[in-house]
Design a protein around this nucleic acid. Structure first.
Lengths: 197, 197
DNA sequence: CGCCGAGTTGAACTGAATCAAGAAACGTGG
DNA sequence: CCACGTTTCTTGATTCAGTTCAACTCGGCG
């Protein structure tokens, strides 16, 4: 199937799976479909699945005490997208997972992944490399939040990921940058003005 | 040696090393000593070592464009402390590693660790579990930075890690909370006042 | 059509930064 | 062990980025 090929191509960048290791992963996975707006895992629940997006767009977000949403990750086709901290620790999640469009994901259950780790050295290796890669993302994000203003973070995002900025609603972009939609609207205007100088 | 026992006890919490796997790690490691203030790895360099603190105190920090320091991690005896993103990606580090007191660490070179990963499944597993644990830390930190005010972050730290607050200078604590020393000084005063109500 | 969520704009407000100056603590050398 | 200079911490006055609240526009879509 086409969607599994995408997943395979991602794995191939990291490890040399034996055919039977790949077959195991495939057999232990399920394909799941969601529609726009669906909450796939809710904060407070434990995330049971490691998901790989094959089609559509989703996000992971937190809700603050004041009731404001902050997006911590967007996931497009080709990305892993789960309440990952909850998945690996198997403790209740601080974050929720939501479909922002119709969304298809290949999902593997924690128990099945653990079983695969047990018997497959390449699986274990893939797990390590994924976690390391995600760590790097998070550290990068931490540094941006600490050292940059909202405007600088927007410019960095615009530069690094212009398609994301085009695809995603301002409301959700604002929640990712950590500002209110009002502030984001103003900030965006400033950036346009700056450029026209 | 006493310092290696501490490291062993940490490993034992995660994996069952065979005696010879543990011996490999031990043989491939070096003990390094630094004095207060030393910069161990400088931003711009590649981090070659995964370090485990056996004595003393260190930190990892970034320097912003405006020349301000932001601490992203403190490490006490029993903690791993490296410019970890650089270590795993073997690309120039955004962060610097510094001794905040006289500091002793057990350090393993990237090449040696990779060799160990190749031959040891438990080693690979340990690597995965460490990366996952560090990921959880970073995500937690991201959520705090996004959703909490400086004062709330200080209160959370005070609650979760009171000894850290007592041990570390206000200047460095401020740089970890992401505020200026001046703001931190005021914020601290407010917290004391709040409590005396 | 009419409504509803998304985006914009304005005015007032607030948490934290900046700049500046003084006080306390600290270590190093005489 | 004291005296000195240096860094750390505090306090005050001002400024600024971003929030809040409120009103208004726009574009879908039921």
């Amino acid at each position: 199937m086409k969607n599994f090929n995408l997943l395979k191509s991602v794995f191939d960048q990291y490890v040399d799976f034996e055919p039977d290791e790949w077959k195991s992963y495939r057999d232990l996975s399920v394909v799941r479909n969601f529609k726009k707006g669906d909450i796939i895992t809710k904060a407070g629940e434990v995330e049971n699945y490691l998901n790989f997006v094959t089609e559509g767009l989703g996000r992971v977000f937190v809700l603050s005490k004041e009731g404001k949403e902050y997006t911590i990750q967007f996931g497009f086709a080709g990305d892993f997208l789960s309440s990952y901290a909850s998945f690996i620790s198997q403790t209740p999640s601080q974050t929720s997972l939501q479909a922002l469009s119709s969304l298809e994901m290949i999902s593997i259950h924690k128990d099945n992944l653990e079983a695969l780790y047990q018997k497959s050295k390449s699986g274990e290796r893939m797990g390590r490399l994924s976690a390391e890669g995600l760590y790097i993302w998070k550290e990068h994000r931490e540094i941006e939040l600490l050292t940059k203003s909202a405007k600088e973070r927007y410019l960095a995002l615009l530069h690094k990921n212009p398609n994301l900025v085009l695809t995603i609603s301002q409301k959700h972009l604002a929640s990712y940058l950590g500002v209110t939609p009002e502030s984001f609207s103003r900030l965006k205007k400033e950036v346009v003005l700056d450029k026209s100088l």
